[in-house]
Each structure stands twice: as C-alpha cells, then as structure tokens.
Design a protein around this nucleic acid. Sequence first.
DNA 1: TCGATTTGACCGAT
DNA 2: ATCGGTCAAATCGA
Length: 334
Amino acid sequence: MESLECSTARPAESASLTNRLRVKEELVLGHELANQLSRVVSNGDFRSAEGLVTKILCSFKNILYILQGSNPGSEDPPEELLSHMRADAIALAPPLPPPRPPPPQILESSAWDAHTAVKRRAAFTDHRGSFKRGKRMTSQAWSRDGPDFNDDGHAWRKYGEKQIQNAIHSRSYFRCTHKYDQDCKAIKQVQKLDDDSQLFRTTYYGNHTCTNSILQAPAFVFDSTSTTPKEASDSKFMLIYDDTSNSLTNNQEQPLFSSTENELMIKSSYTTGSQSSSLLSSGYLVSPDTVVGEPCEPISGMPPQIELDLEDMFLEAEMGHLLYDEEIFPYELW
DNA sequence: TCGATTTGACCGAT
DNA sequence: ATCGGTCAAATCGA
C-alpha cells in the first residue's frame, strides 16, 4: 500500500494568507471537488472519480497540516498529525489484506462442499478461543444511510436477522458471497432507521478481497440513490475507524463536516435539480488503492466554479464557533 | 439441483 | 442474565 503522497507546496503568493483563510480555501476547494466527484460518478466516469478522490484527500491533508501549524509539504509532520493522517488512511484505504494462505487442500468440487469444508475446519479449531463467535472484533466500519439499495457492486448473502433491543426494526446480516471460495471477509449489516424516513442504515465491516466484485475493497460507498433534490441533499455517508473500542459512534446529524478522534463524516450536498436528478439509482464504490496510490496536484487557487453554500456557511457560522468546538474539531487553532 | 433466505439455536462479551 | 453476532438445518425458488 502506497502512502498518501500529496504535493503540498503552496504558491509563494499564498504565504501571506492567514491560516484561517488557507483553511477556508482548502475547505471550499474540497467541497468543490466533492461536487465534481458526484457529477463524474453520476456519469459513470470512475477514472476521473479516482483522481478527484485523491485530490479531496489531499485537501483534507493540507487542512490538517495548516491547523497543526506546520507547512504543507513539510517533510516531518508532528506525531499528533501523523496519527490523524494514519487514521484517515485506515478509514479510506484499509491495509492490504494479509497474504493469502496457501489454498486449502479441498478435494470437494462444488462451492458448497468447499464452504462446508472450511466450516468444518473452523469447527475443528473451536477449542473455546481459537474460533470466535459472538461480538464482532473488527476494527473498521463504514456506515451510510439511504434507501434499501443493495446494489453496491458486490454480491451479498444474508446469513442472519436479529431483533435489536430498543430498535423497532430488526437488523439483517450479510456476508460476501465469496466468503468461503475466496476467503473474502467483507460483511455488512442493514437496519431500517427507527424514524419514519424509510431510510436504512448500512454498516460495512472489513474489505472485499474477492476478485468477482466490480470494484474491489469499497473504501466507502457513495450513496446517491435519492430520488429528489431534497433527498439527495440529505444523502450522507460516514467513515468510521475504531481502534480503541468496539462501539460505533453515531454522529449522523452533524452538519456538513465533522472530525473527531475516531471519525470523519462528510455530508454531500447538491445544489441543482439537474445534478440531483442525474444521480438517480446509483450506488458507487471507490477503490482505496487508487484513492491513496496517486500523487495529488499542488494546491492551486480557488476553483472557477465555487458553489457558495460552504462560503456562506463560514460567514454565518462565525468560524470560531464552528471550529473552536473541540467536540467537533479537536485542534488548537491559530 | 443448487444457491439464497429464513429462523431458532448457539456462542462470546459484558 | 442479557445482548448482539453467527451458525446451520429447513425451506424456498429459479
């Protein structure tokens, strides 16, 4: 896995900008890039999408640099910042799967027989410890809310359904179809939200290592399945990594952007009806390998087509109130 | 016939 | 003891 290489040297003329303005620039740029991403993805242009995702990541990285008080492009970012960046890399581009074990000596021919053989091996090692069951031990999760839209490019097989305490609707459990034939460990849970929104929360655990997927390893799912501009603007996804506890954090209602120790959530918004309507019936995956594998462009000036909602948000939210809240943005600013 | 789903049982964590 | 996650036999359906 290549590291996220951002060329972050800033133009000399920007050196006089305050950190505040630079952060603002970067956020506006990132917002515009996200808008561009939604457009190219709606057109099925995954090549362009990959490049845009790389640029968006670089924009966030630059913001972190600025907020940390170090020069973008610095060779030696502070350790605290590094930990955040490592976290980003984990969330957006989970580490390569461990080396594939040698193919098991399975003599059975059918997929079901292979499945059975793997399960028998697992059962054989179940000496109270080696074969885990029960609480999930995984450390990475990606959640999104949206219509019950399962066509995310992967083949899933339902393996359970459970009524959850204090929840109106039951939770369904899915694993990758290729769990046994290709040792793919990706799973997901789908649960209808308790409100009347008709939305479902889908939480993904693990990464696809199978080769039958349209795109491998969904670093995140871009949910643009809404059918109206209003719904599209409510469409959101959340990337969660959790290396300290097994609980997921629910921060769905934070506006636009929030960053805490263990969480990055981006709310996508669309500003025109035509863009929104072009996003119908689409679920997209972005490969993490391409997300982090390519160097990004140096920071440039403001993009030509800035949509003003983020700009307005900054003006009206009184910057300090928004960003000084350590619950949302735990950095020391300026 | 065979892959997918359903559903009660089982298991580990708390 | 309770809860959430997974297993696996029974069942479904193409």
